[in-house]
Amino acid sequence: MGGRERARRGRRAGAACVAGAVVGAGLAAAGCSGQGAAVQDARSGDPVRVLHGAADRLVAAGSSKARTAMEVASGGTRVTIRGEGVYDFRERLGRLKVKLPQDPAGTSGHRPITELLTPGALFMKNRGAGVPDDKWVRVATATLSDGNLVTGGATDPFAAAEVLRGTRTATYVGRTEVAGTAVRHYRGTADLARAARDASEGNRAALAAAAEGFATAQVPFDAYLDDAGRVRKVRHRFSFANGQGAGTVAVASTTLLYDFGTAVRVRLPEEDDIYAGRIAEEAGGTPGGGAEEGTDGKN
């Protein structure tokens, strides 16, 4: 099945600590008809209705390049994890290279992690912590307490847009620019449980897990849409319980989309290329839970 373009579901609930190490390492270091109507809504419609349809406009656009930034604040320390890559909104497939922050001494102790984003699964290479260089780690996103909105170190671009399906309140702030493109700025709050109900099949279970796993299912956001109703930039502010002690950890996740229509090719790893051993946990732990020794990569 070489070159297959669709994800296979599955892995076990204990997989949360695998992806959680991405954020943990950072903490240690410091289909769509009616497009014309939607375009009109993007220009002058009700903000809640506009935002509910933003993910559909991305599917109509087909694909784009993406940049991500995840700011994690805990115990007076703030770090930023950055990613860059491409995403196919029709196939729900993406590829990001995620760069972890430098360590306190100012040197980078981590190689960039390659992430493949698929419906229901996250694949990571250069995961570290004993994983061979030529092997991938696979995690079922629905088994993660945050649905992989946080623990991968980058929010899946389509999942970020689908969070907006849960918009309950929103206001139109005004016109501005994002990377030289004229956009309309909206500010509001989305409910993850509602977003899960209205999401695509590939994100439904993951967003439902996030609604249960975060400290609150209410997600404040700022969204910037172009005149075609497409998300150009969205910033979510998530909050989850700190498994290492009292209080919560604040995470601000920003997704920037550009170069719509760009070619995207994502080749998923063969079964033999997926690591099936135990993975030692790095410093930190998963959002909403404590650090664990490791996890079994087998089914």
Rank of each mutant, 00 (worst) to 15 (best):
D103M: 15
K135Q: 10
L257K: 02
A208L: 08
A280C: 04
T286N: 05
D191W: 08
F240Y: 14
T68A: 11
R78W: 07
A55P: 12
A55Y: 10
A195N: 06
A206V: 04
A25P: 00
N299G: 11
A161M: 02
Q102T: 06
V79K: 03
A208S: 13
V249E: 14
A29I: 07
I81H: 05
G3L: 11
G128E: 09
A211H: 03
P47M: 08
L58V: 05
H52Q: 08
R43V: 14
F158M: 09
G36W: 12
G2V: 10
V18M: 09
G277H: 12
E201K: 15
A250Q: 13
L149R: 04
D198G: 02
G109N: 13
N299L: 15
A42Q: 12
A170N: 04
A179G: 03
F221D: 10
Y258S: 14
E281F: 01
N126P: 02
R67G: 04
D296W: 10
G166P: 04
R6C: 00
V251K: 03
P132I: 00
P220G: 06
P287T: 08
N126Y: 04
A160P: 00
I113M: 12
T181G: 07
R8N: 01
T254Q: 14
L268T: 00
E281M: 02
K298D: 10
G26K: 02
L27W: 09
G289P: 03
D191C: 10
T295N: 01
E91R: 14
T167V: 15
T295M: 06
T255D: 01
V249R: 11
A21R: 01
R230H: 05
T262Y: 05
D191Y: 07
T286P: 00
V18P: 00
K65Y: 02
L256R: 07
F260A: 07
F123V: 15
E271P: 00
R197V: 10
A55I: 05
G277R: 14
D198E: 11
K135R: 13
R82M: 01
R95T: 14
L96G: 14
T114M: 05
A217H: 08
A25F: 07
A140I: 07
G188D: 13
M70D: 06
A15Y: 09
P157C: 01
V48E: 02
P132T: 00
D227Y: 04
